[in-house]
Design a protein around this nucleic acid. Sequence first.
DNA 1: CTTTCATACCTAGCATAACTAGGTATGAAA
DNA 2: TTTCATACCTAGTTATGCTAGGTATGAAAG
Lengths: 107, 107
Amino acid sequence: MLKGHLDAIVLAALEAGPAHGYAIIETIKRASADTFDLPEGTVYPALHRLEEAGLLSSAWMTPPGGRRRRMYSLTKAGTATLADRRKAWGRFSHAVNALLGGRAWPA
Amino acid sequence: MLKGHLDAIVLAALEAGPAHGYAIIETIKRASADTFDLPEGTVYPALHRLEEAGLLSSAWMTPPGGRRRRMYSLTKAGTATLADRRKAWGRFSHAVNALLGGRAWPA
DNA sequence: CTTTCATACCTAGCATAACTAGGTATGAAA
DNA sequence: TTTCATACCTAGTTATGCTAGGTATGAAAG
């Protein structure tokens, strides 16, 4: 369960440049060292929500000799929201670390 | 929104010793430097859930000249679960930090 | 050539978590 | 005597992530 941090993660995955849904799932899995192996039923609806909210835009593409993909890009609002979410994550994780009595990052 | 980490936080708040609901709320608020100012409607049901799950036990107490309180304590299972949750939080926050491009622990 | 696999998209509906918005009640302070 | 902080409670809303299905194509295997 990603519990509200999924949006930030998806937005961050698109920061490096446009990508399509399936690739985003792979990126998240790889970059999290398999911690987040998100089902499509989680990611696709999230992408739709984020586009609906104006944080992403999408366009269908068909690579030569490949199948059609919907490519997503960060909008300006998406970039701004990502910055907010990063700050929110910082505050959140800081507070949880304080409460769990852990050091910042246990060895 | 605490998004699934509330249980860990509540369990951690009881690690130092038994406490009642209202005090737990205050503890969480203080220890998180006001980041988590949880409404009672969040915490009380959580306490009930955790007791139902066998992670907490409770007993009514009436301090001299005070009003009755329900004191909660960690059970053995609660202590074990807290340890699990701490590990889960470590993995989770590590992965999110990796994805958001942050260092493990921003200064 | 046909079956399987990885890719690539989608959605209806479920479970549940956290919160809103109310309610009750007591002791202390104004 | 009214207000405030304490102290508890719960019904119902909302949103989120997931389950479990479905469609379809290109490449590889047999």
